[in-house]
Nucleic acid binder design. Structure first.
Length: 401
RNA sequence: GGGUAGGUGACAGAGCGGCCAAUUGUACCAGACUGUAAAUCUGGCGCCUUCGGGCUACGGGGGUUCGAAUCCCUCCCUACCCA
């Protein structure tokens, strides 16, 4: 249940209760796909203001295996993250692994080949994946995905969905969304069965959470339907009937134009209950997050801050007015113009990196391939994102400081 | 002093008569990354250009040939071996 503490037009600010603590909304989840946010330790995540992170079912299932993580006491304990965690269901890998294998075969993703024909095979029962590392096949069902997520100790469990690529024709999108709903039902059924059984035990990493009001994870449904209004709304209606703890909007930022994504929000958000969290999966660029928060989204996750950091692309605050279209800049720190620039990445930033290191030094680390480069850059970019969320959490007014 | 192997673009290293301004890698320059197969990928990388092309280039000089980085002569240089 989401406790909304203030609201202005569509924008909501609140608190989300989870097994491992309360999280302020709207929030951003740093991504720890394989049980670690790349280059950043849990302590550093805390320091820069992260309250919750995201782990990945698919990757952790294959390595090290969810049973191992269960034995370790849950992923939080395993990786030393004392706080809430959301787990993705593996649905995105239907898209990302499928589409990429497809591209390798020389077919354009834009030609839209249904993923069932490529790297992942979708049937009513579940999805068959081919592990790109060793070519082994793995079969993931809705029930299996839930089982894994519970073993990982997830606070927010996502249903297994299919994330279709863009463009995607109406017929395919319709079939896909309906299957996603059927999978969601199976997830819900299995989830209830497991969580209500006497054997269910919260994977708690810290005794302080024993008094949490919540003794079981939250389960979120995922709305699909590509860029079609009728399908998106149909998907939302179907999932609303199942009464999930929260609702995610999936299948966006897969190549569709920006306006399409904003349209999807405008169709779907008015249908969702006020007191339940809304999660826009995989988003996004800072301005997309600001727009989505103003539209009523509470949760985000994205690889941009960490991946771009590793590639030398860094965020810089520019304008305090978030309604201003260009409230930030990005620089590529590897550019020659920073060779003798001894100023910090961002004067307005108080992250560890900006307090202690110059652009020139970080550029040097990148050019000689020192791992510290990616680490300092990731800390900075994540701080930029988390600061952005902090600003959004502190201001009821639509996108203004 | 004698012998052998070599000298190719910033570096390493292919090419060994025309399809060579010259494979490839690195370095360098720029760009892209949206529920992470990503410390990855893409493009550029002699000079000039009206984008058709033009010019200068494979140690120096000379030659053979319609045509040479590629063949011949000579000089210079480098590495290793023998004195």
């Amino acid at each position: 249940m989401l406790e909304i503490t203030s609201q202005s037009r569509n924008k909501r600010i609140g608190k989300l209760q989870t097994m491992h603590g309360i999280v302020n909304t709207p929030f951003f989840l740093p991504i720890a796909t394989k049980g670690a946010v790349k280059n950043v330790s849990p302590e550093e995540l805390r320091e820069i203001g992260a309250e919750i992170i995201l782990g990945n079912t698919y990757h952790l299932w294959l390595r090290p295996g969810h049973e191992l993580v269960r034995k370790a006491g849950g992923l939080q304990k395993f990786m030393n993250w004392n706080g809430p965690m959301l787990t993705d269901s593996g649905g995105y890998q239907v898209f990302s692994l499928g589409a990429k294998v497809n591209l390798r075969k020389g077919t354009l993703a834009s030609e839209h080949i249904a993923p069932k024909d490529v790297g992942s095979k979708i049937t009513e029962e579940g999805v068959e994946f081919v592990d790109p590392f060793d070519g082994k096949k793995h079969f993931l069902t809705p029930e299996k995905s839930i089982e894994i997520q519970l073993a990982l100790g997830s606070d927010i469990v996502m249903v297994l969905d299919e994330c279709p690529p863009y463009p995607c024709d109406w017929d395919y999108a319709k079939n896909s969304l309906e299957r996603t709903t059927r999978w969601a039902e199976r997830c819900l059924k299995y989830f209830k069965q497991r969580v209500q059984s006497s054997k269910f035990k919260v994977q708690s990493c810290d005794s302080k959470f024993k008094n949490s009001k919540l003794s079981q994870p939250l389960l979120f449904g995922i709305i699909q339907g590509s860029v079609y209004k009728d399908l998106r709304q149909e998907s939302a209606r179907q999932l609303l009937k199942l009464n999930f703890d929260g609702y995610a909007i999936g299948g966006v930022a897969v190549g569709e134009p920006r306006e399409k994504m904003q349209e999807v929000l405008s169709w779907v958000l008015p249908m969702l209950p006020e007191n339940k969290p809304r999660y826009l999966m995989g988003l996004g660029k800072p301005e997309e997050i600001v727009h989505a928060v103003n539209s009523g989204i509470d949760m985000f996750d994205c690889v941009i801050p960490t991946r771009n950091a590793r590639h030398g692309s860094l965020f810089i605050r520019k304008d305090k007015d978030l309604s201003h279209k260009e409230f930030y800049d990005t620089i590529n720190i590897t550019n020659e113009k920073f060779r003798e620039d001894f100023s910090p990445i961002d004067f307005q930033c108080d992250c560890y990196t900006c307090r202690n290191y110059s652009r020139s030094y970080i550029r040097h680390l990148f050019s000689v391939g020192e791992p510290l480069a990616g680490r300092l850059a990731s800390i900075h970019n994540l701080k930029f994102y988390l600061d952005l969320m902090r600003i959004l959490q502190n201001n009821t007014e639509v996108a203004r400081l």
